[in-house]
Simulated scan of single mutants.
Amino acid sequence: MSVYAICPFTVVPIRTNAAHRSEMGSQLLFGEMVEVMETKGRQWTKVRCLNDDYIGWTPSSQLRDLSPAETQDFRRNFAYSLDLFHNLMGTDEALPITLGSRLPYFDGMRFSLGTQDFTFSGQAVFPEDIRQSSAMVIKIARKLLNAPFLWGGRTVFGIDSPALVQLAFQIAGYQLPRTAEIQVNRGETVDFVEQAMPGDIAFFENNQGRITHSGILLPDSKIIHVYEKARIDAIDHYGIFNYQEGKYTHRLRVVKRIFAPDKNLPPVVIQKVEGQPLNQQALF
């Protein structure tokens, strides 16, 4: 019989190995649930994230076990926090949570987790009330502008590019995998970059041809992604152009579409960045 647990803290690291010095590949946000796959002593638990199947190791002390009934209830009944940062108010203490955290069995003002009762006065949305749209994706992504880059991060205090894409689509009603190289398998391919629309996902490759980066297309040949920080840069047929550095930083591989185009959004209008060489191989 499977055993499940929930994240009862603001954010918990998920590491590639059972050691604090190990690389952090992702994070759990408050209220997110995992399946317990293995334990190593009393300190470490190998988990599979229920929202995206990501597998890694977390400190056992930073998880709370769930009963089978709680697991079923919390998977169906929750709300997403829409605030970048907001305090949950408990009986004797406050607990900060971030954008995308889950409020289990939230009634619009209160919820309980085990023996703890919380009040939440911020903005929240129930999954059943979400209308999937590219406009919602872009609105959520823009909330994270200027969040610093952090490999494996998923919050305003540190985030990577696939996490920004994942979080924006998740709150807009569509669950994507955690990494860019798996995200690229979702959605429909946009055959010609000129046909790209706001809210489409652009994927980028490294020198070995591996997909390592993703971002969300915006109107007027712009893209929101994470490079040193969550930022908006120019994009054309070749890739992302950073005007501060005066160079292309990411080579475009493919554009994928998850949601139908939003007619209320102006077009992307991909155009070549002015004044750049035509030799694509010399750009990176």
Results as ranks from 00 to 15, higher is better:
T155K: 07
T155M: 13
F157P: 00
F157E: 08
G158S: 12
G158D: 12
I159T: 14
I159S: 02
D160Q: 10
P162G: 08
P162D: 04
L164P: 14
V165M: 11
Q166K: 11
L167I: 15
L167V: 13
A168V: 07
A168E: 04
A168P: 02
F169E: 00
Q170F: 13
Q170N: 09
I171S: 05
I171L: 09
A172G: 01
G173H: 06
G173C: 07
Q175V: 12
L176W: 04
L176H: 03
P177I: 03
A180L: 08
A180V: 08
E181I: 07
I182V: 14
I182Y: 14
Q183F: 05
Q183Y: 01
V184L: 03
V184K: 06
N185K: 14
N185V: 05
R186A: 09
R186Y: 15
G187L: 03
G187T: 08
G187M: 00
E188Q: 12
E188H: 11
E188T: 13
E188W: 09
T189I: 15
T189F: 06
V190I: 15
D191I: 08
D191Q: 12
F192G: 08
V193W: 09
V193M: 11
V193H: 06
E194W: 09
Q195W: 14
M197V: 13
M197H: 13
M197T: 14
P198H: 10
D200F: 04
A202N: 03
F203Y: 15
F203C: 07
F203Q: 02
F204S: 04
E205D: 09
N206M: 14
N207D: 11
N207S: 12
Q208M: 11
R210P: 05
R210S: 13
T212N: 09
I216C: 12
D220V: 02
K222M: 10
I223R: 00
I224D: 12
H225A: 05
H225R: 03
V226T: 15
V226Q: 06
Y227S: 10
E228T: 11
R231P: 00
R231F: 03
R231N: 12
I232D: 06
I232M: 10
I232E: 12
I232F: 03
A234R: 13
I235T: 02
D236A: 05
G239C: 05
G239Y: 01
F241R: 00
N242V: 06
N242Y: 03
Y243S: 15
G246V: 04
K247N: 06
K247Y: 00
Y248L: 00
Y248K: 04
H250G: 00
H250C: 03
R251K: 15
R251M: 14
R251I: 06
L252V: 09
R253T: 04
V254K: 01
V254G: 02
V254P: 04
